[in-house]
């Protein structure tokens, strides 16, 4: 064996190993794996305690999140009592808190609108979102049209809270204050002032 070639070979191997190690440590090389990461001495990483939305062998259904006891309401929860059809009751039951028309409230309304409404109704409320453009969900009404702009705040609150036609209820996702903030913001998109509520008879005629 040639004695001169041997060190060069080893130096090359050493350089490759060193370079590989450096790249791995620098986070430039990542392996994708569907197997959970190996753990060396996982001391107290996994404790026997209830973590939100995790499995839990203590309960027979293996879920750590428990359903509320029937007939109870969580602290601070504001469930919406009316059904989709209770249009007349909604006009009197939903009392507009008259949030101030500040930029902070409008920004919150815009933020919540973009999160929860824009997926279908689009950022400008004209209901021409990508979902609609792809033909996935036809027949979503333009919220800036006159017919919708004429609805009272209480009625729009009712639609958000109880749903309408194929639109589900968002009472579980959007807090009461946020729903009123969304209405405030929607009014700016519609370019109308909006009324707090209509007498029930007027609403029926507007249909």
């Amino acid at each position: 064996m040639n004695a001169r070639k041997l060190p060069i070979l080893w130096i090359l191997i050493g350089l490759v190993i060193a370079g590989f190690t450096t790249l791995v440590l620098a986070g430039k090389i990542a392996w994708f794996s569907d197997q959970p990461p190996l753990e060396f001495l996982s001391n107290m990483d996994h404790q026997f305690k209830a973590i939100p939305q995790s499995g839990n062998t203590y309960f027979s259904d293996r879920a750590s999140l428990r359903n509320p006891v029937a007939g109870t309401v969580a602290i601070g929860a504001q469930p919406y009592e009316l059904g989709q059809g209770d249009i007349d009751a909604a006009e009197t039951a939903n009392i507009d808190p008259n949030l101030p028309q500040t930029e902070f409230v409008l920004a919150r309304g815009q933020n919540r609108f973009n999160v929860f409404c824009a997926a279908c109704h689009n950022y400008d409320a004209k209901s021409n979102s990508i979902l609609v453009q792809r033909g996935q969900w036809p027949g979503i009404p333009d919220l800036t049209r006159e017919q919708t702009a004429a609805l009272s705040n209480a009625r729009i609150f009712h639609i958000i809270s109880a749903g309408q036609n194929l639109m589900p209820s968002y009472a579980d996702k959007i807090s009461v204050t946020d729903r009123w903030a969304i209405i405030r913001y929607l009014r700016t998109l519609q370019g109308v002032e909006g009324v707090a509520s209509n007498p029930p008879s007027a609403t029926t005629q507007a249909q």
Partner: peptide, 19 residues
Amino acid sequence: LLGYFGVRNDVADVGYRPE
């Protein structure tokens, strides 16, 4: 090398992509 870098979180956890 395998043990140290394969088990270290900053190497092993990144790229975890379960089905």
